[in-house]
Simulated scan of single mutants.
Amino acid sequence: MYHNLKIVFSSRFLDHKTGRFHPESPQRLTAIQERLVKGFCKNKLQWLEPTAVEQSQALNWVNKIHDRKYIDIVKTIASRGGGKLDEDTPVSAQSYDVALLAVSAWLDGVDHVLKDNEPCFILARPPGHHATSKIGMGFCLFSNAGIAAHYALSQGVKKVAILDWDVHHGNGTEEIIAHNPNIIYCSLHQYPCYPGTGGEFDRGYHDNVLNIPVKAGSAIKEYQQFFEDKVIPFISEFKPDLLIVSAGYDANHDDPLASVSLFPQDYYTLTQYCLKITRKIVFGLEGGYDLEALAESVEQTFMACINMN
């Protein structure tokens, strides 16, 4: 039986402060939340606090994936009131705790999907797909998707697929999963663009990586061709027990940080493709920096999940 779509969210995610003019702002979540509580899906959503996994357990999983020295760096910067990992990646006084809570939320999402066999959306920040095992970058602190994939394997899942439709390549996620033959990673991303990785011939150590470089100006027609010719065959042949989607919405035409030309309604189409593979999907927020386009695009993902039941 289909249940209301679950959203894992906490107002504490707003406490990761990035500065007045930083694109990865708390207002991103506020815009999405306001759109959802007033929009077409409002009566079909179930809002949940990230409570299933305690912070100590989240830290345990962060320790499994990330270098201890790097974790200590983030914690120390936060304890001193804030600072930066690099010019793009600020750490505020609450960022360490909020980043651990974000990891908890993604792990909760895995638990919900495995229990319900239905999609779940993780509305959390900071994002994670640029965080490598040894350093955070590109607005990201801990590898939410990579950690969630390894956690799923510990819960009895045999195979996990990660699909990253953020407009930027998830270099951190790729690095973290590349040695594990039970996890595959597929990324569609503008190329060349930040962070400069994700060439089409990078295949991972077990042929478990598929990078799909996308040209500036590409629209839904190109994305549909990529999904039908490459994404769906790659993931379907692997036969995953769980699909994790690094759901960045910065491939929007109006997004200020890239030059791809999708529109919010196109994310309905991309979500439909995913649901044709499986309904066991953890969607987790990554990028997306035009607030109106971001909020509308997330709503389109929700509508696709609700309508295909």
Rank of each mutant, 00 (worst) to 15 (best):
M1S: 14
V8G: 08
F13W: 01
H16Q: 11
K17Y: 14
G19F: 08
R28Y: 01
I32R: 11
Q33W: 12
G39Q: 10
K44V: 00
L45S: 07
W47R: 12
Q57F: 05
L59V: 09
V62E: 04
V62H: 10
K64Y: 06
D67S: 14
K69G: 06
Y70M: 08
Y70T: 11
Y70F: 15
I71M: 09
V74T: 10
A78H: 01
A78P: 03
A78K: 02
S79C: 04
R80W: 04
G81I: 11
G83E: 06
K84E: 07
L85I: 15
T89D: 10
P90K: 13
L100V: 12
S104L: 04
W106D: 09
D108N: 15
G109P: 09
G109I: 05
D111S: 11
L114Q: 13
K115V: 01
E118S: 14
C120Y: 00
G128D: 04
H130T: 12
A131G: 03
S133D: 08
K134P: 00
G136W: 01
G138H: 08
F139I: 05
C140N: 06
F142D: 00
A145D: 08
L153C: 11
G156D: 11
H168R: 12
G170W: 03
G170Q: 08
G172S: 07
T173P: 06
N182I: 00
I183D: 04
I184Q: 07
Q190K: 12
C193F: 14
P195L: 06
P195F: 05
G196Y: 03
G196V: 08
Y205N: 13
D207I: 00
V231F: 06
V231C: 08
P233E: 04
P233D: 06
F238E: 07
K239I: 08
I244V: 14
V245W: 02
D250W: 02
H253A: 07
D254G: 02
P256M: 03
A258V: 04
L262M: 14
T269V: 15
T271K: 03
Q272F: 03
I277F: 02
T278H: 09
I281C: 09
G284K: 00
L285P: 13
E286A: 13
G287E: 05
L294H: 03
A295Q: 04
A295G: 09
F302M: 15
M303E: 13
A304L: 12
A304E: 12
